[in-house]
Design a protein around this nucleic acid. Sequence first.
RNA 1: GCCCCUGUCGUCUAGCUUGGUCUAGGACAUCGCCCUUUCAAGGCGGCAACACGGGUUCAAAUCCCGUCGGGGGCGCCA
Length: 500
Amino acid sequence: MEKVRVRFAPSPTGFLHVGNARTALFNWLFARQKGGVFVLRIEDTDIERSAEKYEKRLIEDLRWLGLDWDEGPDVGGKLGPYKQSLRIETYKKYTQKLLETGKAYYCFCSPEELENERKEALESGEMPIYKGKCRSIPWDEALQRIEAGEQATVRLLTPDKGNISFHDIVRGTLTFDLKLIGDPILVRSSGLPAYNFAVVIDDSLMQITHVIRGEDHISNTPRQLLTYQALSLSPPRFAHLSMVMGKDNTRLSKRHGAIGVDQFEKDGILSSALFNYLALLGWAPPEGKDIWAKKELAELFNLEKVSRSSSIFDYDKLHWINRQHIKNLSSRQKAQLAYPHLREAAFLPEKMSDAHWRWLEMVVEGLIERVDRFSDLPTQVALLFDFYPSEMKDEIREELKTDCAPRIIKLFSEKISHVENFDYDKFAMMTQEIKKETGCKGKGLYHPLRVVLTARGSGLDLDKFIPMVEEGAKLKLPKPLKSCSQRVAEILGFLSESDL
RNA sequence: GCCCCUGUCGUCUAGCUUGGUCUAGGACAUCGCCCUUUCAAGGCGGCAACACGGGUUCAAAUCCCGUCGGGGGCGCCA
């Protein structure tokens, strides 16, 4: 059997959109599953919109997602160059061949003329296609006009009657009426190839066996098939993937949330999680679980099982998957991934000592289960630092109006002021003593202690909170962390007799 | 407007090829309970779908037709 060769062919006009990322991912999955070759090709024939910086960004985004390619502009390969702007001479050669054999012709119609023709067709309820006005211009005359410097495009001569059909791997047989397909422009008047022409030449020369792309290309396929025919080239197989939509079932756009792969990275989504989520959008592995590693997905992928209907991008599910992937990380990895977010929120110094890292690991390990993205971590960490007795809510003061609370607070403040190197063990001993001395227990015992230490009514388990605060208080941090004894001393001034 | 694709819980999907095993399974979300000094996390459970209408058949989510809904395309963009 021939070796599978697939490609992802983005135009460098911006960041990598998750919809495109999924197309790239499915190509990659298919290539790896089949032991084939994955090619990256840059389609930059639209010089107006394409830019070098976008190409770089695209490559970075693709790599971040965990994709690698066997041939491409940055890695080379036998069938390059892998950038359309570098292949202009090749396209010209094929254009010449088509022109000489009469399979294509020069079209001198102006954009305005074509626009009018289109409008008229639309008004009379027809499909707006090129009527073929320049087909009848004799070859000699056309050549003369070209030599005289007249602007012209090159169009493919297509049949007016009959059908053309092809087998789509995800959709089955698709048939199109040829009278609804106008002669497509192969070469623009600028001399640069149009998309439909360049893809055919490139896919053919790069020996692509399977074209896996978005559904928006379905209607281009018959035109491309006709081009293969005119060139006597054999076409690849096609698979058209459904679109990725936003919550309201319209095309996924910025107002739905993050859509650029780099944005997900900034938001603290792990690339393994985005990879996992995207792979499951429109495809399901035989075993119905949700959390998968890249490698497993590559083993199980099956293009024929890909869904035909469009799917909505669900941020909730992505976040849940992200949480599961975070759980599988080591403490060290979690700390490293958390650092940039906490550094940006000014909770951590630029230079981290070993002690800082140890503290960070403890903090992240304790707080990470409360969030599903690293970008949410600063809000949680802020709860460690924020201690505002003066802004304590009335309902919390109310809760202290019990028989136990004043006695507990008094005893605790005395004990903590006499102890050195406070830690959770000492806290546990103190609470046992207080329990005996006051007879208070359970919520009645712990709630006042929590309030005294946090000025809040709820939060982290105290066995986690105390070590985080105590260890943090020993470190030099951009914003100092108050120790438990400091907190107790401070809050006492705000608890008036009436509170107690 | 015309052409093409598509339609299972709110969402992602399993099942559809080869009708019966489907009182339609799983996951996310949501709701409730449990755990717990609080909040999370976690555990357990509930709610929730075959778009609609006709056929075919002993039997249809599964096959056929129509309707309606959604999406895409109709560029000297890709």
